[in-house]
Amino acid sequence: MARASAHLATPNASDLLEKARAAAASVVDPEIPVITIEELGVLRDVAVEADGSVTVTITPTYTGCPAMTVFVMDIEVALDEAGFEQVRVETVLSPAWTSDWMSEAAREKLRAYGIAPPVGSAGSTGLFDKPDVACPRCGSLKTERISEFGSTACKALYKCGSCHEPFDYFKCI
């Protein structure tokens, strides 16, 4: 998902870039620690300048998502630990983030963690449509939405009618 671009052509440049990219890509979502910002689609670009300074570009999932501040701090720490001293994190809004950017592998990780991944693609459901959300624990489709909104901006709250467990659903937007 994230692009990696080198801005200089010394023999070392691509190694440095790869190192910076890997460090940034290792940062996980503080609220869903099994998913990295790369898998989430939040990490958009990593660039290393000739002077060794790094610019990481991210995009917010939701405009008011409080996790964004944590993302920025965690990216700075990860790059610092990888040996980069000058790090800048930039935020872009376009193209707007969508849950469609999450890979199949990331969706599987969500499920294994107990969060039902988004069903279908963004914008495909009508005003009163209800998606068939499978329980991440038992796979049953006999589930019920308790609330359109959940513990974080990106989640809704569901309950399984088969195993009776409540669970989070990663909103499709």
Partner: peptide
């Protein structure tokens, strides 16, 4: 461009808010 970028982001959220209030 700035307003267009903010609009594209806000649109998705507004669609969700509309679902909630319409229900």
């Amino acid at each position: 461009e700035r307003l267009a970028g903010i609009a594209a982001k806000a649109e998705k959220e507004a669609a969700y808010h509309l679902r909630h209030s319409a229900e």
